[in-house]
Simulated scan of single mutants.
Amino acid sequence: MSSPAAATPIELCGIAIRERSAAPMQKLSAARVTRGAGVEGDARGRPGKRQVTVLSLESWNTACAELGVNLCWTQRRANLLVSGVEFGPDSVGQQLQFGSLTLEVTRETDPCRRMDAAYQGLQAALAPDWRGGVCCRVLSDGELTVGLRGLLVPGPLQGALQLT
């Protein structure tokens, strides 16, 4: 019998929102995140599996290095930038915890053609190894500030048999 997976320390490096679907991203130093609105002020915060998007700084840096360019992380159009973790298929069901805020990873964020509009080749550079980040649903409300430390923890059903 294997031991339960340990929590991974993470740090919040950035917060961003967009007021409407195609609007430019706006960086924030702090934000409230709720089950009803996602990151408050963001156009895509409705409840569901893609309520909040999270990007790994390490994965973003890998994609930028592959392209030979240093792009601002907001080009990815994610809500949160975290360091200390790289996401993958095993991330589904894990939870990001920052104080009272808990986000559940629901799936990979697929890079879309809008990435190539930001920088040619970015969509392909984000495609491998979940470099485009993850989608999350808000399980419990909380406040975020850039620099806040948190944990990536196994979810209650992670590793359990799922029937579809």
Rank of each mutant, 00 (worst) to 15 (best):
residue 152 L to P: 07
residue 138 V to C: 08
residue 56 S to Q: 08
residue 37 A to P: 00
residue 154 P to M: 01
residue 119 Y to G: 03
residue 151 L to I: 09
residue 156 P to M: 05
residue 67 L to T: 13
residue 150 G to H: 03
residue 92 V to R: 14
residue 33 V to W: 01
residue 129 D to H: 12
residue 135 C to M: 13
residue 2 S to W: 13
residue 69 V to K: 02
residue 58 E to P: 08
residue 16 A to F: 06
residue 130 W to Y: 15
residue 2 S to Q: 14
residue 84 G to T: 00
residue 154 P to A: 10
residue 159 G to C: 08
residue 29 S to T: 14
residue 70 N to C: 10
residue 112 C to R: 09
residue 29 S to R: 06
residue 139 L to W: 09
residue 24 P to D: 08
residue 106 T to L: 00
residue 10 I to S: 01
residue 110 D to E: 15
residue 123 Q to E: 15
residue 108 E to P: 07
residue 80 L to G: 03
residue 49 K to R: 15
residue 1 M to R: 14
residue 97 Q to R: 15
residue 91 S to P: 13
residue 61 N to A: 15
residue 121 G to L: 04
residue 107 R to L: 13
residue 86 E to R: 05
residue 155 G to I: 01
residue 113 R to P: 09
residue 94 Q to Y: 11
residue 139 L to I: 13
residue 101 L to W: 04
residue 17 I to Y: 06
residue 112 C to A: 09
residue 164 T to N: 12
residue 71 L to E: 05
residue 82 V to N: 01
residue 7 A to V: 08
residue 33 V to I: 11
residue 48 G to Q: 09
residue 18 R to G: 15
residue 53 T to Q: 10
residue 15 I to A: 03
residue 138 V to Y: 02
residue 137 R to N: 06
residue 122 L to Y: 09
residue 61 N to T: 11
residue 31 A to R: 05
residue 130 W to S: 12
residue 66 E to V: 11
residue 69 V to H: 00
residue 58 E to Y: 05
residue 20 R to I: 15
residue 63 A to I: 11
residue 86 E to I: 08
residue 43 A to F: 15
residue 117 A to N: 14
residue 23 A to W: 04
residue 50 R to G: 05
residue 10 I to R: 00
residue 3 S to I: 13
residue 135 C to R: 11
residue 152 L to Y: 05
residue 152 L to W: 07
residue 145 T to H: 14
residue 44 R to M: 03
residue 45 G to F: 04
residue 24 P to W: 01
residue 45 G to I: 01
residue 102 T to M: 10
residue 30 A to Q: 12
residue 149 R to M: 07
residue 150 G to N: 04
residue 86 E to F: 00
residue 90 D to G: 11
residue 45 G to D: 01
residue 55 L to S: 05
residue 143 E to W: 12
residue 118 A to V: 05
residue 27 K to V: 12
residue 75 Q to M: 12
